[in-house]
């Protein structure tokens, strides 16, 4: 057998092995994927019920907010599926497994990312994708709008991946991940699913300048709805998500140098 050389092919193999192992428990996988679909589906049902009663929020109609929910939800589901390893990083640190990763001649980022790829996140992704498709059908959609929507999903995914990486970097110093970190991940999903203009200043500041979810979701959406069609700035705003991810990977490298084993 030819040894796998590039980091990418190792990654693909690790991911495939992970997926194969999850498909061994098919009934369990289906149940969990359906559970995910149901959780976020009912969350959206609650939002729809609010629109049914109140009509609009800050001038935004249900399809416009559904567009935001779809972008943020699917971006988050992709990030959670791909970067779950970073989310569970405190367990890797506690068991001393990170020492083993350091010994291998591949980047730690790739290894942690491939540590666990959760296929059941497809339930959440499908739910968000349905909402996004439903919104796009009712909004005035051109091919350019679809391109912007794709860029927004990818930018949002990058932002959440960056958050997971930062959360994991924190465990180099703290070992346990404090519950409060969920505020920016889960909290980010909830906050960014609505137009940012409804929030008090400190929240707007957090999700614009510290975590660039505004530029991957709210701002491009507002540009499209104001202009009535896709615009060039709307297409490029989500790039800030990518920049955020690259910054957090740099911080990860710095944290890694700080690492000392738990010794188990």
């Amino acid at each position: 057998m030819k040894p796998a050389t590039s980091g990418r092919s190792v990654y693909v193999r690790l991911v495939m092995a992970c997926l194969r192992s999850q498909m061994q428990y098919r009934a369990s996988f289906l149940m969990m994927a359906f559970g995910q679909f149901l959780v976020t589906g009912l969350e959206f049902a609650a939002i729809a019920a609010l629109f049914y009663r109140f009509g609009s929020i800050h001038g935004w109609k249900i399809y416009q907010v559904a567009f935001l929910c779809g972008v943020v939800g699917s971006g988050y589901a992709l990030a959670e599926g791909l970067c779950r390893g970073f989310d569970q990083f405190s367990a890797i640190i506690r068991r001393g497994d990170f020492d083993r990763l350091l010994l291998r001649p591949r980047s730690t980022v790739m290894q942690v990312a491939a540590f666990e790829v959760q296929l059941m996140r497809i339930g959440r992704f499908l739910q968000a994708a349905f909402v996004l498709a439903w919104a796009l059908m009712h909004l005035h959609t051109e091919p350019c709008t679809l391109m912007v929507a794709a860029a927004m999903v990818i930018g949002t995914m990058c932002t959440f991946c960056g958050l997971f990486v930062l959360q994991a970097t924190l465990t180099f110093f703290t070992v346990e991940t404090p519950e409060i970190v969920n505020v920016v991940t889960y909290g980010g999903v909830e906050t960014a699913s609505f137009p940012l203009s409804i929030y008090p200043g400190w929240l707007r500041f957090t999700f614009t300048w510290l975590v660039p979810l505004a530029s991957t979701a709210y701002l491009p959406a507002r540009m499209i709805f104001r202009a009535g069609h896709a615009t060039l700035p709307a297409l490029f705003a989500p790039v800030f998500g990518l920049l955020f991810l690259m910054t957090s990977l740099l911080i990860w490298r710095m944290g890694e140098r700080h690492y000392s084993s738990t010794g188990t």
Partner: peptide, 24 residues
């Protein structure tokens, strides 16, 4: 820590519901 998280969630949800209630 849980309380800090709940406070944050509460403030986000209050902003959302306030905006809905103002609309109608």
């Amino acid at each position: 820590f849980g309380m800090a998280t709940q406070l944050f969630w509460g403030l986000v949800r209050i902003a959302i519901f306030t905006a809905f209630l103002k609309a109608g």
